[in-house]
Amino acid sequence: MNKPILNVKNLTMNFGGLKALDDVSIAIEKGQIAALIGPNGAGKTTFFNCITGIYEPTNGIVEITPPGKNTQSLRGLKPNYVTERGIARTFQNIRLFHGMTVLENVMIGRHCRLSSGIIKAMLQPPSQKNEEQKAVTDSYEILEKIGLEQYVNDMAVNLPYGAQRRLEIARALATDPFLLLLDEPAAGMNPQETKELDDLILWLRDNENLTILLIEHDMKLVMSLSDWIHVVDYGKKIAEGTPADIKANSDVIKAYLGEDSDDA
């Protein structure tokens, strides 16, 4: 049997007295679109932060098995190394670089795949120039794929909200990931934009060979997209299964009805 691409075992994260994550185990198979859902404050974003090295988990194992490579542990790695290993993410509260253009935002994603250092930047030998050119073309191509090429030279802050969310995805793609973590990509989008996002995520899985784990409150989107759904509540994992299983699961219904959730 193939090893899961991301294997998280018994993950616990304490903030002082608060157990934001309590013994959570989640495995993601290659080529899946998996969803992580749960009421507000359930610990979903914290889960992402623990995997990507922004938080160091109190306990647990985080392992990845990149396609064609050996299994390795991510525990204790700094965020930039996690990204280098091939995990990219977007943020729930959009975190674009507002002092830069749209293209440059994507080029930042290419950063860890470029090799030229300071001396080369100052002297600009042909190798550096070619690399830089290639970074520009690659980034532009990514913008075309995501459908943002008309904004290429605009400042990132001046983009409409939906486009900013897509730019976050473009920027994450630029790091050449095998696993993409999306934190509420549809938040704040209108139905039209959500539909386009739906198509984009499917397209990414099918054409870019990506595995996708998304956090989302829009249940319609989650149910239509996901192959597999994991549910957390108060830091504990309460269920996992196909969309149909989850819809019928009494624990999940209780968790959602007991809370004031955004969507039904």
């Binding site: 990507t52 090295g53 922004i54 700094k78 965020p79 930039n80 990204t83 280098e84 990219a88 993410r89 943020f91 975190r95 674009l96 670089f97 507002h98 002092g99 830069m100 440059e104 080029m107 930042i108 994603g109 950063h111 860890c112 795949r113 920027r171 790091t175």
Partner: peptide, 18 residues
């Protein structure tokens, strides 16, 4: 570009592999 990214948002900057 990495400098400017760092100035604008340290966390996002690290998450981009810098």
């Amino acid at each position: 570009r990495a400098w400017i990214a760092l100035r604008d948002d340290e966390i996002a900057c690290q998450a981009m592999g810098i």
